[in-house]
Each structure stands twice: as C-alpha cells, then as structure tokens.
Design a protein around this nucleic acid. Structure first.
Length: 442
RNA sequence: GUGCUUGUAGCUCAAUGGCAGAGCGCCUGACUGUGGAUCAGGAAGUUGCGGGUUCGAGCCCCGUCAGGCACCCCA
C-alpha cells in the first residue's frame, strides 16, 4: 500500500494558505513590474554540473539523481545559478541591463524547521549586466517597497559589502582563505553577543588582539554616513575595503534619491551571508517579530555568470522567501485574511427554479463576478445560505416563485445581514455598486 | 547530518500500567422561503506505524515515520 503522506520538509498548501501565498506573489509581481522587471521561468531540474562549484560548502545539500539515460541531474538549489546559465545561453537575445523576476520552488536537503523547508518557494529579482551602484540601490528600493506593500509594519534592511568583511579579516592579519570561521562568527553577533563571538573567534584560531579589533569593527552602528566614515578611517590601509566604502556611499545616496525612508536600512558590518558567489553589496531584511532568520537576502555577484559566459556580467539581485513571508504574515496577522474567492452565491429554490438560477449565475459570471452556484436544488435555503457563508461569499441571491413572478431577485448582503429585492435586469449593476461603496468606505 | 522533545476524534488538548474523554468543529432537527446567534439530538478513534515487556500498554522499552527546538546553515 502506498504511504499516504507528503515528503518530509515538503508541504501541501491547502486553499486558505494558497490565497495568502498568491496575494504575496501577486503583490511582489506588481512591484517588480512597476520597476520595469520582466518575467522568466526556467526548469526545476538542471544538469548537476551546472550547480556544482558555485555554492561552496552548501553543495552537500543539493538533491542529485540520475535519469533513465544515466545523466547526472539535480534539483535547483536557488534561482540564481539557473539565471546565470540562462543568461550565458541566451546572451545574444537579451538586452542588457536586463531586469528579470522569477517565481518557483527550489530544493535543499536540510533538516526542516519553522520557516525552513526542503521544498521552498522563492521570488527572485535581479538586474543583470550593470555594475552601477544605482542597480544595487534599485534592488534595495524594490525590496523596501515590496515589504511595505505587503504590510510589514517594521523591518530593516541590513547592508554590507563583501570587501568590508574581507577588509576586517585582512586588517586583523588573517588570510582570506582561512577567514571562513571568522565570517561565521561575525554573522552570529546578534545571537551570541560580543562575548560569544569573541569566544568563537578565539576558538577558530584568531589571536586575542585581532579578535578585539574585529569585535570593535563589527559593532560600529549609527547613521549610514557615520558608520561609513568610521569604517573608512579604520580600514584606510586596505584598498579594497576603501573602495567598498565608496561603493556603499553611492548606494546609500541613491536610496535617499529614490525616496526610501532612512529608517528602512542601515549599514551593518556584522552581516556576512554564506553563499560563496557574492562579490560586492550583501543585504538581508529582518523584522523583530521573526528571530529565526531573515525574510529575504541578496547581493551582488559579478563573477558568477562569467563562469558560464565567456565575459563577466555583473549582476545584483535578491530572493524573497515566500514560505517565510507567509509564516510571518500569518503569525502577525498582516495582509488580507481571505476565506474564499467568491463574491456571489446563487441559491436554487427548487427543481422548478433551477434553470432560472443557472441563467442568473451565468450572467453574473459573464459580468466578471466570481460566482458560486448551489449544486443542490433539493436542499433547503438554510443549508444553501450556510454554504454561501462558509465560502466567504458576500452576497446570497434567491430566485423563488415570487421573484420569478415579479421579475426580481432577492439579494442578501451576508456581511450586514440586510437584503432587498432588485429588478432582475439590474442585479449586476446593484452588486457592482455595493462593492464599490464598501471599498470606498471600509 | 548530530542532540533533545512531541505524536490520543477534523482542530486544541485530558486520561496513577486497569472501561479512551472534554471543548470547539462536523451532521440532523427545532425556526417564518434565509447563514453567522440559541436549544435538542447524532456521527466520529486499530491512541502515527511496527515490534517487545506485562495478567493487562495511550502510558514502560526498542525501531521507524512525521512535527517542534538547539547545533549547522539559510529563504
């Protein structure tokens, strides 16, 4: 007998969850298109070698398998590496800079936890083929507007730069290749505090003086300008870090120019991020209501696409975690709380009146109103009203013998409980007006 | 992948090793041609699954699957 259950870490999304998920995706899509992004979709399955060699340690989490022809395949780990493949493959057909968004599932063989699954949906947005700090700023602005549009009351985007983290490691006398443990320790600052990070640094072989220096740098906070001035001064001997500060200044200036409120972002030297392909700006959006992790993350990866294409194609982008956004919104009760998609429910008084009710439902649908038709001519009106209520329909319509004789329809507003007789020919208009009224004055 | 923890009706949870229960939900009816209120009835379970100990296991032991938490890492 087949096992009746879903795969660990992979979920079924029932209607109530799907309604919120679709709302999230639609909102993100609208914001993206407002910024001039175009849609892209690519397969979930890639040749394993396409994904290999780009992710560093995370590679062990890739789902791999062989197809019937013995080809080594893999489920995509994110949508960024497949994007790189697509860009390299179709470079001649794309107009750069290319702004694209993509939505779909990715797969990682991790231990599942709250907000973290083996099959998870991401909504990505990237600007391909521009090294300009304006591109970085557009991505961060897009992020900020998207979370605002979804109704997140408070979130902050932490901004940092790979070469600032690198500079912190270098100035402390560590060579870059051995600095992985340092990045990981730094990244835990918010969780472990200064003492915890110090302990972690010493354990990974950093000498005490260097550890103190790292801790001091990592704890710099304040207005973006002040933080950048401070980093500039302290990392003055490191050419690449200085360049990174200049880059971040340009990005922050552009964010101000784009009208993103200053409270929405901050320079955070402690932000590391694990993915190996980032080369410049890195960022994460966090909210105090979700201590488990970030809502989304991203950054600039100027060399990744070059691994597929013959020339380097600088790119910056981000990935929203739809499952995580959904979990947080559900917990915080933000966004719509829809119970269904129907506006109208057409009852059937009895077998004699069934044809008339069908015609009415058909007419409402033709007018673009989401309409449910009762499936039980022999059920009492009470039962049918109950169904209308549970499906979240706003209006229940009755076409009984009296109405048919008089040429009208009883329309009951299930939210207010009031009802009235409406001339048969005016029903669509009447419902339309009621909906407009109620959205104008909520 | 490692450690800890949980799994009982659709949901939230009770039940000293001794007859498996409650609330909510669900179904039927009382109510005029009408939901969400109230009242009266009803259905519902191989206690995640498989083994073991015991006269007797929801409870103890082993395994397994799934959820949660911590590590790891990230969306």
């Amino acid at each position: 007998m087949a096992t009746i259950q879903n795969i660990k870490g992979m979920r079924d999304h029932l209607p109530q969850a799907m309604l919120l998920r679709q709302h999230i995706v639609t909102t993100l899509q609208q914001v993206c298109e407002r910024y001039g992004f175009e849609p892209l979709q690519s397969p979930v399955v890639e040749y394993a070698e396409v994904l290999e060699g780009k992710l560093g340690d995370d590679e062990k989490l890739i789902y791999r398998f062989e197809d019937h022809g013995g080809r080594r395949l893999a489920l995509r780990y994110d949508q960024t590496v497949p994007l790189a493949r697509v860009v390299a493959q179709y470079a001649g057909q794309l107009a750069f800079p290319w702004r694209r968004y993509a939505y779909g599932p990715s797969y990682r063989g991790e231990r599942p936890a709250r907000g973290r699954y083996r099959e998870f949906y991401q909504f990505d947005a990237d600007i391909v083929g521009s090294p300009s700090p304006l591109a970085d700023a557009e991505i961060v602005a897009l992020l900020s507007e998207s979370l605002a549009a979804l109704g997140f009351p408070d979130f902050v985007t932490l901004l940092n730069h790979r070469q600032i983290i690198g500079g912190i490691a270098r100035i402390s006398g560590l060579d870059e290749t051995a600095a992985g443990g340092v990045y990981r320790a730094i990244d835990k600052f918010d969780k472990l505090g200064a003492d915890g990070v110090r302990e972690e640094l010493l354990r990974s072989g950093v000498d005490p003086a260097a550890a103190e220096q790292i801790l001091a740098l990592v704890q710099i906070e304040g207005e973006p300008q002040a933080v950048l001035d401070e980093l500039d001064a302290r990392l003055a001997n490191d050419e690449r870090a200085v360049a990174a500060v200049v880059n971040l200044r340009a990005i922050v200036a552009a964010l101000a120019g784009l009208g993103i409120p200053a409270a929405r972002y901050t320079i955070a030297p402690r932000l590391a991020r694990g993915l190996a392909y980032y080369t410049g700006l890195v960022f994460e959006a966090i909210t105090p209501h979700w201590p488990e992790g970030s809502l989304l993350g991203g950054g600039r990866y100027d060399e990744l696409i070059g691994q597929f294409a013959k020339r380097s194609i600088p790119t910056v982008g981000l990935a929203f975690g739809i499952d995580r956004l959904h979990d947080v919104m559900e917990q915080l009760k933000i966004g719509p709380q829809p119970t269904g998609t129907a506006v109208a429910f057409v009852t059937i008084f009895g077998p004699e009146q069934a044809q008339a009710s069908m015609a009415l439902a058909s007419e409402l649908r033709a007018a673009g109103l989401n309409t449910l038709l009762s499936l039980e001519p022999n059920a009492g009106l009470g039962k049918q009203f109950k169904e209308a209520d549970r499906k979240g329909a706003r209006f229940a319509l009755v076409l009984g013998p009296d109405e048919l004789a008089q040429g009208d329809v009883v329309v009951k507003d299930l939210r207010s409980g009031t009802q009235e007789s409406v001339a048969r020919g005016a029903v669509v208009e009447w419902i339309g007006n009621s909906l407009n009224l109620s959205t104008a004055t909520p």
